[in-house]
Amino acid sequence: MKRILLLISLAFFLLGKPNAWAAHDNHPDTVKVGCYIISLHDFDFIEEQYTTRFWLWMLHDHPIDKPSDMIELPDAKEYKIDNMMMDSLNGKGWLQLKIKSVMKQAWNLQNFPFDEQTLKIKIENPEFMVQDLIFVPDTLGKSYDPALEVDGWKIKSFHIDTGRAHYNTAFGDNTQLKPESDYAQFVVNITIKRDAWGLFFKLFLGMYVAFAISYVSFFIDPSHAEPRFGLPVGGLFAAVGNKYVIDSYLPETSTLTIVDTLHGLTFVMIFVIIAFSALSLRQDDDGQQKLSNATDRLVAWIVGGIYLAVNVVSVLMAL
């Protein structure tokens, strides 16, 4: 009889023993999380990724068997923990990790090269749901190196936040009332703005020169048909080549970007130049030299004014 009672007691003990990180009295355990960004680099628009190195630390109440299991970066293509330290502070466990990660990034290229990007570094706890564990941000001190420089970019804003990552599945756990799961999430939000003017002129100088070459044809006598038509045709090929060069640095996108707008405008204006050159030549052949010259002057003012206005408006809207 004593042996039976002992076995029953042992069974109740094993079944009722709480997980070290389980919620007590329906209150989830709280883990304070902080970060310190060391670097942001290797921005790759074609592969849609960038690389970051940062310190991450956690203050917790319970021991951790395997610290690397405490975190997951769901948006990382790959990440590596370069350094790990564990200690105790004021009776709490302290875990510090140095992480290098290649992060996925959906670049917003609508206003390229005057674009502004928001980088999000998401860190989740993959073991315990929010009923058992939540994150709170450690906002004491700086969250990134004040000397941090991102080549070609300026850091516009930086803030950290915590929340929950929602999944519309219970991952096979049929004890859940709903096939849903929520896990603690720590998010680093970094907004960067490109220092764009130098890049803009480097990228678009070829396009503007191509248009200028085409525009010069308005000042050539229509009787000289070869240079009158040869210049805009050459300018058109130069503009198309410039467009292909820029596109080679960018991923494919269905969004109409400022690159598409300005190059499309250049193609249309060069076609207009060629079309009205043909009209001017026809008028000159018919002996209407004055009308031909008037056509050249009028169309030159219209084409130049429209081209300049659309360029200025497009750039100002992108800034």
Rank of each mutant, 00 (worst) to 15 (best):
K2E: 14
L7Q: 15
I8K: 09
L10N: 14
F12D: 07
L14Y: 10
W21G: 07
D25K: 15
N26V: 02
H27V: 15
K32I: 11
V33L: 03
V33Q: 02
I37T: 14
I38A: 03
F43I: 14
F45D: 01
Q49N: 08
T51S: 12
T51W: 02
T52M: 07
F54L: 11
M58L: 15
M58D: 02
H60D: 02
K66N: 12
P67S: 09
D69C: 02
M70A: 12
I71S: 00
D82I: 06
D82T: 09
N83F: 11
S88L: 00
G91D: 01
K92E: 08
K100E: 11
S101Q: 06
V102T: 12
W107H: 10
F114K: 05
T118R: 15
L119P: 00
K120C: 00
P126E: 06
M129N: 09
V130H: 01
D132K: 04
I134C: 07
I134N: 09
I134H: 04
G141W: 03
P146A: 07
A147I: 00
L148H: 09
K156D: 13
F158T: 02
I160A: 08
I160F: 01
G163A: 12
G172K: 09
N174V: 12
N174K: 13
N174H: 07
T175P: 03
T175K: 11
Q176T: 07
L177D: 11
E180V: 15
D182N: 14
D182Y: 13
A184W: 05
Q185A: 12
Q185G: 01
F186M: 03
F186E: 03
A196I: 03
A196E: 02
G198Q: 00
F200L: 09
F201K: 10
L203V: 03
F204R: 09
G206S: 10
V209C: 08
F211L: 07
F211G: 01
A212V: 09
F218R: 01
S223K: 15
E226G: 06
F229Y: 12
P232H: 04
G234N: 04
F237E: 02
A239L: 07
A239G: 08
V240P: 00
G241T: 11
V245N: 10
I246K: 04
D247C: 03
Y249V: 02
L250Q: 08
P251M: 07
T253Q: 05
L256R: 04
I258N: 12
F267V: 12
F271A: 15
I273H: 10
A278E: 04
L279Q: 10
L279G: 11
L281K: 12
R282E: 10
R282Y: 11
D284M: 12
D286K: 15
Q288A: 14
N293I: 03
A294H: 13
R297D: 04
I302H: 01
I306H: 05
Y307H: 13
L316F: 12
L319E: 05
